[in-house]
Design a protein around this nucleic acid. Structure first.
Lengths: 135, 135
DNA sequence: CATACTGTAATAATTTTAATTACAGTACAA
DNA sequence: TTGTACTGTAATTAAAATTATTACAGTATG
């Protein structure tokens, strides 16, 4: 799990929606999030591959939304930065112990069910909905 | 967020339930989880304060469940190791930006709702239920 | 009183995450 | 056509979080 990346990604999309029509630079975006511009460019590379963001290179270049904020759900954003929200780091238990041998599978079941539920909730919320909270 | 600790805590409780009646040492438990005994003792210190585990000091000492595994829910275990399952690490955005100033509050809302939902699911599952999966 | 445990803290090592640096590539504009 | 201001990307360093290790005092048992 890594919510730092989710926070960053959603922050980027929020700024792009609020400043719709403008091309925002990685430096401007990084200034709002308070992270390094290279990280913004990297995360945008990921979001761009999914069609959420478009970029323009060269002088005067920058970023805009690649699709309407009403068409991007938070579950899509979460999946973009993270395969399994909840599972996270597991132990590496002893395979010679009956419990150790099985527990990771059982934990995985547990979390994948919860993951689905969590993502189902986020699926109902679009970036546009989220941006409305800033009004 | 930190699921390593949840995995460790649940592993401990699972072993204690399966080996009910016996006193298990931190070394035995650590051998099954494949972590350091001092970590087991530390986590047990936490679980003992909540009444989930009892310990006996001195030679021949060790650990047993402090209450029936059917009376311990996974949501209680989760809360024992983690205040907010989902929120995790946040950024430290620029307070001079309208988005930066507000986003952490909005993220927190988002995650606290999801947290409640997640814990509500875990509330339905007891340690005993979990242990049944090993049969 | 020797032994085998727990309880707890301090420190070190490891892993993960983010920051920094660097630079090639691209578009604009004088 | 050249300087400038951007993106794209990778390599390296730094910081933060997590876990491991070590150490030892305290306690019960035989």
């Amino acid at each position: 799990m890594n919510n730092g990346r989710f926070a960053t990604a959603l922050h980027i999309l929020t700024l792009l929606d609020i400043k719709k029509g403008e091309l925002l630079s990685s430096e401007f975006i990084a200034g709002s999030i308070n992270v390094n511009p290279a990280i913004v460019r990297k995360e945008i590379g990921n979001l761009r591959a999914l069609g959420f963001i478009e970029s323009k290179e060269g002088k005067g270049g920058g970023y805009t939304l690649g699709k309407s904020s009403s068409k991007i759900t938070l579950s899509e954003v979460y999946r973009a930065v993270n395969d399994s929200p909840l599972l996270g780091r597991a132990n590496d238990p002893n395979p010679d112990c009956p419990v150790g041998r099985q527990i990771n599978d059982h934990l995985k079941d547990l979390f994948s069910t919860a993951d689905e539920l969590f993502l189902k909730q986020l699926d109902k919320i679009t970036v546009k909905d989220f941006v409305k909270r800033f009004e």
